[in-house]
Design a binder for these strands. Structure first.
Lengths: 348, 348
DNA sequence: ATGAAAGCGCTAACAA
DNA sequence: TTGTTAGCGCTTTCAT
């Protein structure tokens, strides 16, 4: 292959210096219109492409951001990445992707990779088992812009973009109550993650507000999986006081709940209500369709990137912590709505 | 922030030259054990991290690969990326992701971005509307390693990793036949994409082999979407000779077929069989569960990366085109299996 | 409006 | 085994 064109080759053709070419290419104000014209012409003739690596080395900006997600195989994270990508590309940024596979070990490896690659900033949704944020404190000291999305930590003082999990959970639980379920259980997620704490709190407060008791054994800590939804359900059904509805902290868990209920021939939503969280794709297509909370994944991606970009561009100024909270959108489907025609307390 | 350590800072501390440090860090054979030891010690004390940008500029290798996918929001591509990532990270490569949103325009933009970023190689699954491969010929001339996955082109002479689409389609159709359906229609995908040609051909050949006629109007060209599955079904139901089963070229299309059938109160699988392709996540969870072909997404990602890596490492040797064909795994679920107890031809 | 010159941090051919 | 030297391609300050 013939070597690709550089600013020097352009400069040679025109008998000007590389510096001038560089400036012309950047549309620098101090370059004459005619020079710019000719540079552009030669550049396109030689099929010149700026070497970003060289440019990055010199300028210290790579125009790359790193994104760490637990896994690329859920619709939720897929959509967030989609949002990030779209936005980043529009602003001339590239996206380096890294999957933690839900372990802190990989997460840290990802960050180190990103640092070595000199990314301009990092977006991360922490792994299930991340409970130590010392690493992020380090990054803060190094003034590397970092934004958490979805799975954020409250105490680290790092900017974040999350859904209003508390509100979403409250709405979900309230909806179940209004549909006549009054023994509502909850399958939560790992409690060291703020998301799942908040969702539990929303559930609890909704019960309180409607004067429903918090029954013993009605909260089961799952681990965000179909299997834990099933296990939770087996647990609930073994109680003397059985629930008649479940608010699951996440859709896959809700799916597990539904599967287990079906295998016990318990009718949803007639005999048992189910509500999820995440608006995973499958919820719309299963029978019955799954009620859920849409956390606005694409918007989350977009907002995360924009926030990060702000931080990148104002790198010198004091980095203020900024928290963006998205409005959760309830999606009421079949699994939580029964025709209540007057027998609100039929099961109590 | 204090500037991060460089090889020079390490060299200074030890009164040796940067070159020696560089070599020590690379475990170069000509460096003494003791020097390596001390370099490593100082490096870790200073928290040295190699600057990959500088390294790339000098060596011409970025250890980054670019991946272009139509979109990150299907389980299939999510899983392929998962496979790529895992494998790439293990080998010290980073993954730049770009989504074409199914348009050739974005796809080309992605490639240009990757070239500017000096990636070592590119993995691409072409967009729905890509029909011009001139761009890839260019890459070939420039000796940029490229591997197509899933959506490949046969004539470009570019290496690829795909599922045996023909075989998968054949198995699916054959299975429908063996389950007593004998008016089997097909919803295909865009025919300028080889995947969908192959699937159609597998369908046709299965019919032939079992001496079933290719009925007029039984092939509907969809565009890989729920909506086109619905439209196809409406078309099929409007025919005088109606089909009693559909092999859809892809799961979302199959889902559309099922939805439309349900809205006409046509029972699946009793009155109508449905078979998909892709093994999207939802198929396992809808009612009835969807029979499909598992194209081995994660394996596809892994194999694609390994093939690309080979090409990257043997860049000087003649690049031979290599095609890897994965074995499709049928997943027989409810939507295609009826109890046929002797009335094989009940509908004919 | 343009040129000259230095250098980002690292690597590698050649020399010793 | 280690040092010397040059330079990857670009940006940017300072000078003209």
């Amino acid at each position: 292959m013939q070597k690709s064109a550089t600013i020097s080759s352009i400069a040679n053709e025109l008998n000007i210096t590389p510096a001038t070419v560089s400036r012309a290419l950047q549309d620098h104000p101090s370059i004459s219109h005619s020079t710019k014209q000719s540079v552009l012409k030669v550049a396109s003739r030689l099929n010149y492409k700026r070497n970003r690596v060289a440019s990055s080395l010199r300028s210290g900006k790579t125009h790359m951001i790193g994104v760490i997600i637990p896994g690329a195989d859920t619709n939720f994270f897929g959509s967030v990445v989609h949002g990030i990508e779209k936005c980043a590309n529009a602003k001339g940024y590239n996206v380096l992707l890294y999957q933690s596979n839900e372990t802190q070990e990989h997460e840290i490896k990802g960050i180190e990779t990103f640092l070595a690659a000199q990314v301009d900033g990092i977006l991360v949704s922490v792994a299930k088992d991340t409970n130590n944020y010392a690493y992020y404190e380090e990054l803060k000291k190094k003034k590397i812009p970092v934004v958490f999305f979805d799975r954020a930590d409250d105490d680290t003082g790092i900017s974040s973009v999350v859904t209003d999990d508390y509100k979403g959970a409250f709405i979900a639980t309230e909806h179940l109550i209004k549909n006549g379920y009054n023994h509502i259980a909850h399958v939560s997620g790992p409690q060291h993650l703020k998301v799942f704490c908040d969702r539990k709190k929303g559930y609890e407060d909704a019960l309180k507000q409607y004067n429903l008791p918090l029954t013993d054994g009605f909260i089961y800590e799952g681990n965000v999986s179909i299997e834990s939804g099933k296990a939770a359900t087996r647990h609930f059904l073994s109680l003397k006081q059985k629930p008649d509805a479940v608010f699951a902290a996440e859709d896959f868990t809700a799916l597990g709940v539904m599967k287990e209920l079906k295998s016990h021939n318990i009718k949803i939503p007639e005999a048992f209500g189910v509500f999820g969280f995440a608006n995973e794709l499958f919820g719309e297509h299963i029978t019955p369709t799954l009620s859920t909370i849409d956390p606005q994944a694409v918007t989350m991606g977009k907002e995360s990137f924009e926030l990060l970009l702000q931080m990148i561009e104002n790198k010198n100024e004091a980095v203020v912590e900024k928290k963006i909270v998205l409005n959760p959108i309830p999606v009421f489907r079949e699994s939580s709505q029964r025709k209540i025609s007057g027998h609100l307390n039929v099961y109590s």
